[in-house]
Computed example of a mutant assay.
Amino acid sequence: MTNSVDRRALASQKRRRLTTAAARVLHRQGVERTTLADIAHEAGVPVGNVYYYFKTKDELVRAALAEHRARLDDLTGTLDRLPDPRERLKGLVTAWIAERDTAARHGSPVGTLATELGKRADGTLAAEAGAVLRRLLDWTAAQFRALRAPAPDDLALTLISACQGTTLLTHTLQAPALTTHEGERLLHWLETLGPADGNP
């Protein structure tokens, strides 16, 4: 019984390593340039193990998107512990700024995948990537709603579009300072919004 439990635990750990590796490699290289061997090497497992857990590259892409969704949930879950929705939003921007060097090298983890997958005839995986960004938009809108700000969905779109657009420029121009500059502007903008009671 113990051996069976140990085997299941080891299998779960190996699958987790492969999923984490897939998220990293796909972010760096994109879907088309990534092989299952690349992911096996990143995870430090024999390539045959990849086929045991994931039969196709698309399954790995789906696992990588689940990893990005889990990381987003971890971040927003941590921010949700802050009592003030304005501080939660500022925390989101600050976390985004902290990733500026990675953004300059590889772009947005989900945004780049969504763009690449969106060019496929079958839009299933693109829709799943879009759902991760939709999750972020919904969380952001909820914070503006908690602030009693007018048009919270529009404000969320403004904030996330600014982050995603700046990440694209940061990557294209290899200029992390762009993210720092835009991040500081967004933090100032969040400060200028009316207080949580909705009064200007």
Rank of each mutant, 00 (worst) to 15 (best):
S4L: 10
V5G: 05
V5R: 14
V5P: 00
D6Y: 06
L10A: 14
A11S: 07
R15H: 05
T19D: 10
A22Y: 01
A23D: 00
R28C: 09
R28P: 00
E32Y: 07
T35G: 03
D38P: 03
I39G: 05
A43L: 04
G48C: 12
N49H: 07
V50S: 04
Y51G: 15
Y52A: 15
Y53N: 12
F54S: 11
T56N: 09
V61P: 06
L65T: 02
E67H: 08
A70D: 09
R71F: 03
L72H: 07
R81I: 02
R86A: 05
E87N: 06
L89E: 07
W96S: 12
I97L: 14
R100M: 08
T102A: 15
A104M: 08
H106A: 14
V110A: 10
A114N: 05
A114L: 08
D122R: 05
A126T: 08
A126C: 08
E128M: 11
R135I: 00
D138N: 14
F144H: 11
L147V: 13
R148G: 05
A149M: 10
D153K: 14
D154Q: 13
L155P: 14
T166N: 11
T167W: 01
L169Y: 08
T170Q: 01
H171M: 10
H171V: 02
T172P: 02
T172F: 03
T172D: 11
Q174H: 12
A177Q: 11
H181D: 12
E182F: 12
G183F: 04
G183D: 02
G183A: 03
E184I: 00
L187Q: 06
L190H: 07
E191P: 07
G194R: 05
P195G: 09
A196L: 08
D197V: 14
D197G: 04
G198R: 03
P200C: 08
P200W: 01
